[in-house]
Design a protein around this nucleic acid. Structure first.
Lengths: 190, 190
DNA sequence: TTAACTCGTTGACTTAAGTTAAGAAGTCAA
DNA sequence: TTGACTTCTTAACTTAAGTCAACGAGTTAA
C-alpha cells in the first residue's frame, strides 16, 4: 500500500531513500465502511486523507438539499479546508464505498517539512498543480451547458457514474436530478 | 511600492529582516497601459505578476467569443498556468486599466526558495489558501442561479462592475450579455 | 463630418432547466 | 412478507436563459 503514495509523489519529484524511509515510517492507515462519515458540518478537523482504495464525496446542505462539492477516488488527496484550524467545517465527507486511506495530520506534516524541506517544496508544487487543474475545471464549467458538462464527465471520469447515485452526480453538475434524467434520455435518442 | 508585497506576505507569516532585504533586492516592476496584452494564447510564459495598481483580466476564446476566466486587482497574484513550462498558453491576459505590477519569474523564485526555505513554505501556505478560496467560489457558483451569482458579485467585488464592461462580467458569470441586462432590469424593479 | 464600431438595451421567439406530482423498481429492515 | 424508503423516470406546467434582430448612444478613425 505504501508504494502507492511514493508512486504518486514520484510523479512530481525524485524521492530520495531517506525521504522514502521517512514516509514509510510515518504512514498511518485507516479503513472505512460504505456510508461512514469522516467529517460533519460543524466538526473541527485535524486529518487529511490520501485515498488508496474507494471513493469519498464532499457535500454541504443548502435549502435542505445535499449539494455535492467533489468526488475523490484512488490516488487523490482530500484536505478538509478547516484542517488544523479552529473553524468548524462547512461540509461533510462521506464514503461512497468501503475506503482505505493514508491519514496525515498538520503536526506530523510540519515536523516532516522541517526535517525534509524537499517535502515542503513538493507540497507547494502539488498545491500549484491542483490549483491549476481546479481553475481549468471551473472555467470549463462556466462556459458549458449542463449537457456539455455531463458529456465531459462521461469522458473524463466515466467510472463516477457507477460509483455515485444520479442525484449526487446531478448536484455535482449544478442541476436537478430530473434534468439529468432528461439529458440522459435526450442523448440516448441522438 | 515594495511595502505592499511585504504587507501581503506578512499576513501569512512573520517576515524576517533578512527576507525583507532579499525581497526588496529582487523586486522588479513593470507598468502597462490600458488595453496592453501581457500574454496571448499560444505564447510561452516566464513571468508572474503581483498587482500593485490596476486590473488584469484573463480570458480565452471559444466559438469566436471571449470568455472571461478571472479578474485580478490590487494585491492579487496572477500566475499563468503554463509559467516556466514548454506548453503554450490557453488564454490571454489583458490590462483593463493602466496597471503596475511586481514581476516574478521561476528561476529567480527557485533561487530565492533555495536561499530562504521560509519563503517556499510561505508559497505553499498561500497556494493552499488560494486553493481553498477557489474551491469555495466554484462550489458557490455551482449551486447558484445566474441572478444569485450576480448579487454575490455585487456584494463581494462591487468595484469590478465599474472596471469591466458588462459583456465581460456576463461571461465571467457564465451567461450572455442580454441575460445580464435582463437580470439587472429585474432587480431594479424589485 | 461621416462611417464603422462597440456597448448596453429591448422585444419576440425558442429552448431547456426548475417545480410539482406521481408511479415503477429496487432495497432494507421490522 | 410487508411496508417504508430511495432512486430514477415521466408528464405537465412555469420560469428564465439563449438566440436573433433591431435600435440609440457613445467612441474611434478615416
Amino acid at each position: 500500500m505504501k508504494s502507492k503514495i511514493l508512486k504518486y509523489l514520484s510523479k512530481y519529484t525524485e524521492i530520495t531513500e531517506q525521504l522514502e524511509n521517512a514516509i514509510n515510517e510515518s504512514a498511518y492507515f485507516k479503513s472505512y465502511k460504505k456510508g461512514d462519515i469522516l467529517l460533519k458540518e460543524g466538526d473541527f478537523s485535524n486529518e487529511c486523507y490520501f485515498i488508496l482504495e474507494g471513493c469519498i464525496r464532499s457535500y454541504f446542505i443548502k435549502d435542505g438539499e445535499e449539494k455535492t462539492i467533489e468526488f475523490y477516488t484512488e490516488k487523490e488527496v482530500v484536505t478538509p479546508s478547516n484542517i488544523g484550524k479552529s473553524t468548524p467545517s462547512q461540509y461533510f465527507l462521506e464514503c461512497l464505498e468501503d475506503t482505505v486511506v493514508n491519514v496525515g495530520n498538520p503536526a506530523l506534516e510540519n515536523e516532516m517539512y522541517h526535517k525534509y524541506p524537499q517535502l515542503e517544496s513538493l507540497s507547494r508544487v502539488i498545491a500549484e498543480v491542483i490549483l491549476t487543474k481546479q481553475q481549468e475545471s471551473y472555467t470549463a464549467f462556466k462556459s458549458s451547458t449542463p449537457e456539455e458538462r455531463y458529456l465531459q464527465l462521461l469522458k473524463t471520469r466515466p467510472n463516477l457514474l457507477q460509483r455515485a447515485s444520479q442525484h449526487q452526480i446531478a448536484s455535482y453538475l449544478g442541476i436537478r436530478p430530473e434534468s439529468l434524467s432528461r439529458i440522459r434520455k435526450r442523448l440516448i435518442n441522438k
